[in-house]
Design a protein around this nucleic acid. Structure first.
Length: 754
RNA sequence: GCCGAAGUGGCGGAAUGGCAGACGCGGCGGAUUCAAAAUCCGCUUCUCGAAAGAGAGUGUCGGUUCAAGUCCGACCUUCGGUACCA
């Protein structure tokens, strides 16, 4: 059913013009017969097998997510999302600016640029056009043709990795062409350089070296003049030592001189509009989403194309497929399932389904058609699973309206931060499309978002000392022989000679590690446990199945929540789970004691406080402190001869979300016939949560010198008198006079003496 | 470089501006045991002290306050994200 409804959603996108085809350059590896991701290509060859890779345009389906960019950005506002809100905003990358036409010198056309800084227009001393821009070959003068062509070719071969390599040096070549600065009238040279991206904005920029880092670097390399047109303080500076990228006051800008940058921006745009050479423009970094995959596994795209043929293409008759006229399948024809294939290997730029001739071609009303052989990416399913999961067995509709009303929107989404910009953005996009199509009632699917922290694995590292100042590190398997535990330092050590330590792990660092002194100053090696991302290569992966086997599922659950705050990165320590297991065992032992209906006052107070704290902590998702509170109460119950029934009952209820199995068992032992998971959350009485007498700290000049037990509402005078009866406090007050008494009832008493 | 988060014992981590280190791990001592495992009890930030207690202490430097891990300013370090988006 899932495939069917995923295809159904795709048809919604298709109907609304949000799914379209385009030729997109991809890394095609003929030897492997597959499209490679950028990371899989190194120096023009495949990472796997080192085969040649060519960059060639390939027909792909794309989803027009850019159409929704504005709404995707704007609707974030109302959501209870943490830091990831900012990340999505940056990913969408909305910017406001202007498009400006620069007339070409000696040619009829003009070169249009996008800029967010129209206020720096007078400072534009050159222009850059992307190497793959449509106009690049046209404006290049004959003398420069060979050079520009070579540069453009080299640029197109660079993988994205090369482009973004650290320490990139600005490169580029002069095209021989000039344009006119529309405001200053100056004639300025046009370069082509790969620091300008063809796919963003208009693929060309006006360069203002005095006020832009990148332009500044480029201008320095090519000795291009820099003109200051924005001044921080309004005074003129003749030499530009580094670009000033902030806002200021316009200078050397003709009629705009003296204007604050923001004012000038709107004035310049108004002026350009008036002249008919520019307009206001909003741009996004977000690109349309390539939705095709040339592989077998994936939902088939429910689209087919007309075929020109004289015979039966399934029998190898010559044919032409007209990809420009995609036809959507009918709802009633869904699902379109994958055919059986003898092998699922790639081999054709349009995917392995090309080989499924009987599946691919069909005849209808005497005409032949060919199905789309690209499939959908894994994202397709993850984009809307939360909707199908409402009503997964429904064969009639995508989901039942009642199920939707019961559950949607999602109150809380707990997921990894790595999904912020892809999965969560794609899902929001699909949801909005379904909203526009009237399928869902809410414009946003996920109200609150919390990222759980990653669980890190434990690895061991050698720290060795060479002479006085060299430290050495090498990853070490915890089972390495020769590891000894140093009780004095509470650390593990291993003896090693200098020769045993590989020189390539040398790193400069001080001798003192973690404040400890190495045992052998000359070649002592110290082993320290560190936390790293779990990975096979590091050998620090913890398999939850093994943990469950050894300690039980409850122990694992409780431990994971006990380790620390939900949203923080946490290092796994197998020894830590032992403590949690002990806690659960103790609680079980308590529940097996003879039960009593009696409840002494101390226990009553503790019980109500425990329920209160756990309730509040669960609401705030502070699971670690909720568990520690239950531990404290359990430890108290361990000390009692008989187990107070009410206390055990409520404690089991508190535990049930954390350790459901044990909670159910205790609950059943207490004589309940319905499961604890259906029971109400326990209540507490606020009156038992406040003390009548409190012990507060007594400070003298801000330093704690004793404690004193007081009635909760004791007066300041009473508090001071009680404090002065304390011997140690007296010692510090002694012959001095009390100048001031700071008394916060129930908290602190601070005597200022002098 | 930019954006974000975080720096507290041997370790994971607690602390509405009010006794820093709850709870757990590890460690030490004890009980139990023929012995061990398991379990139970006590101690466990560092320095000095037999103890009572004193001094120091939450990345660094400075500030606000009777009082700062917490608030403010500057800086350092680590982790995560991002990468020429004009």
């Amino acid at each position: 059913g899932y495939v069917r409804w995923t295809q159904w959603v795709f048809l919604k996108l298709f109907e609304r013009g949000l799914a379209f085809q385009a030729k997109i350059p991809v890394n095609w590896c003929p030897a492997l017969g597959t499209v490679l991701a950028n990371e899989e290509v190194i120096d023009g060859r495949s990472e796997r097998g080192n085969h040649p890779v060519v960059r060639q345009p390939l027909r792909q389906w794309q989803l027009r997510i850019t159409e929704y960019a504005d709404r995707l950005a704007a609707d974030l506002e109302a959501l209870d999302w943490p830091e990831s809100k900012q990340k999505q905003l940056e990913w969408i990358g909305r910017s406001e600016g202007a498009e400006v036409d620069f007339p070409l010198v000696g040619r009829p056309e003009s070169l249009t640029v996008y800029t967010t800084r129209p206020d720096t227009l007078y400072g534009a001393t050159y222009m850059v056009i992307a190497p793959d821009h449509r106009l690049t070959p046209l404006i290049t003068t004959p003398v420069h043709h060979a050079e520009v062509e070579a540069y453009a070719l080299a640029a197109s071969r660079k993988s994205d990795m090369d482009r973004t390599a650290l320490n990139r040096q600005k490169t580029g070549v002069f095209t021989g062409a000039f344009a006119k600065n529309p405001l200053s009238g100056a004639s300025i040279p046009i370069y082509t350089a790969d620091y300008v991206l063809g796919a963003y904005g208009t693929g060309a920029i006006m360069a203002v070296p005095a006020h832009d880092e990148r332009d500044f670097e480029f201008a320095q390399t090519f000795s291009i003049p820099m003109i200051e047109v924005v001044s921080a303080d309004g005074t003129l500076h003749d030499v530009v030592e580094k670009p000033f990228t902030g806002d200021g006051v316009a200078v050397r800008s003709g009629p705009f001189d003296g204007m604050p940058s923001a004012t000038m921006r709107s004035n310049v745009i108004a002026h350009l509009v008036e002249q008919g050479i520019g307009k206001k423009k909003v741009n996004y970094k977000l690109r349309d989403w390539v939705f095709s995959r040339q592989r077998y596994w994936g939902e088939p795209i429910p689209v087919y194309f007309p075929v020109e043929t004289a015979g039966d293409p399934r029998r190898g008759a010559p044919h032409t497929i007209d990809y420009s006229r995609p036809i959507a399948m009918n709802d009633s024809e869904l699902p379109l399932l994958l055919p059986e294939l003898d092998d699922y290997l790639p081999g054709d730029p349009q995917g392995p389904l090309v080989r499924a001739l009987d599946w691919r071609f069909f005849e209808r009303d005497g005409k032949w058609f060919a199905r789309e052989t690209n499939t959908m990416p894994q994202w397709a399913g993850s984009c809307w699973y939360y909707l199908r999961f409402l009503d997964p067995g429904n064969t009639e509709r995508i989901f039942d309206q009642k199920a939707y009303d019961d559950w949607m929107p999602v109150d809380l989404y707990v997921g990894g931060a790595e999904h912020t910009v892809l999965h969560l953005l794609y899902a929001r996009f699909w949801h909005k499309v379904l909203y526009d199509a009237g399928v869902v009632k809410h414009p946003e699917p996920f109200q609150k978002l919390v990222h759980q922290g990653m669980m890190l694995g434990q690895s061991f590292r050698f720290y060795a000392v060479l002479g006085d100042d060299g430290a050495v590190t090498r990853a070490l398997d915890g089972d390495d022989p020769g590891v000894v535990h140093d009780r004095e330092m509470g650390r593990y050590f291993i003896d090693a000679t200098q020769e045993q330590v590989e020189p390539r792990f040398l790193a400069a660092s001080g001798v003192a590690f973690d404040g400890g002194t190495p045992r052998h100053p000359e070649y002592g090696v110290k082993l320290v446990a560190i936390a790293e991302k779990m990975s096979k290569s590091r050998g620090n992966v913890v398999n939850p199945d093994h943990i469950v086997e050894e300690f039980g599922a409850d122990s694992l659950r409780v431990y994971e929540m006990f380790m620390g705050p939900l949203d923080q990165v946490k290092p796994w320590q197998t020894s830590g789970i032992q403590g949690v297991r002990r806690f659960l065992d103790r609680l079980y032992t308590v529940s097996k004691k003879p039960l009593t209906d009696a409840l002494d006052e101390t226990t009553t107070r503790q019980l109500h406080r425990t329920v209160k704290k756990v309730t509040e902590d669960v609401d705030a998702m502070r699971f670690n402190t909720a568990i520690s509170t239950m531990m404290i109460f359990t430890n108290h119950l361990v000390g009692l001869d008989a187990a107070p029934k009410e206390a055990v009952e409520k404690l089991a209820l508190c535990l049930s979300p954390f350790g459901p199995h044990l909670a159910e068992e205790i609950w059943a032992d207490l004589g309940h016939s319905t499961p604890i998971s259906l029971a109400d959350w326990p209540s507490y009485d606020e009156r038992w949560c406040v003390d009548d007498t409190v012990e507060i700290a007594v400070q003298v000049n801000g330093k704690v010198r004793g404690t004193v037990a007081l009635a909760r509402d004791a007066s300041a005078d009473a508090a001071r008198d009680a404090a002065l009866r304390d011997e140690n406090v007296q010692k510090f007050v002694a012959d001095k006079s009390i100048r001031k008494v700071v008394y916060v009832p129930g908290r602190i008493l601070n005597l200022i003496v002098g």
